[in-house]
Design a protein around this nucleic acid. Sequence first.
DNA 1: CGGAATCCCTTACGATACTG
DNA 2: CAGTATCGTAAGGGATTCCG
Lengths: 129, 129
Amino acid sequence: METKAPPPLASGPCRCQQRIRRTLDLIANKWAVPVILELSRAKGPLRFTALARAIAGITQKELTKQLRELEGAGLVTRHVYAVVPPKVEYALTPLGASLKPVLDALAGWASDHGDRIAANEAAFSGVPT
Amino acid sequence: METKAPPPLASGPCRCQQRIRRTLDLIANKWAVPVILELSRAKGPLRFTALARAIAGITQKELTKQLRELEGAGLVTRHVYAVVPPKVEYALTPLGASLKPVLDALAGWASDHGDRIAANEAAFSGVPT
DNA sequence: CGGAATCCCTTACGATACTG
DNA sequence: CAGTATCGTAAGGGATTCCG
């Protein structure tokens, strides 16, 4: 029974959710944030290996894939030097850099409530009965 | 899936990245944002089916899983009524509600740059060579 | 009504090895 | 140095069915 008049939601609550999800898909890729933050910290181009070394635990495969995706989204530039020892440098585009405030907002919230969430999850899992 | 394998994320020189990733893992689950936003819009408890109907495309399985996770994180409350036709209501906790500004920041960024990103991706994919 | 259980497919991720 | 290729595993996610 429709107790309340159903809002004229065409095929969902609102379209903006899709947008958020789209953005989320970009940065939810496990290594996307570390890559972006690392490039952001560098304040300049970084070589592939430098990036790989800065981000502990990442594999070449994942780093490559991540960089491709970010490049495709226009958040990162890829500069290939035609030299004998191959040299490729990556850097954030202004668009990519513009994501930093958002990540900061996220980081801020995480800092504020991360402990509580962790505690909640621990309690939720360890609840006896 | 009892004990969550603690990922030895030692990525990067700063710990804040872990926090962000943790938060990201919470909201990156494809349906987390729609669920949170829907509960946020409702400004009150919603029944399982009401939630399911409000979020087009979601399955019971996914909705249940998502609600469990959000409940575990303490972002959502689950109230079970012991009545003949089962009745369960979900609502945002203050903690869950506090996530809204962050989602708004994300939504704002997505609104501002979503088109450009989509265009970039299209061009990146469709580029012949 | 709410949700747990099952089946099955697709994607994500990690490790190793090989090449321009 | 900077990838690409291949393999195997794990997790995500949709559809259906059954049960309190």
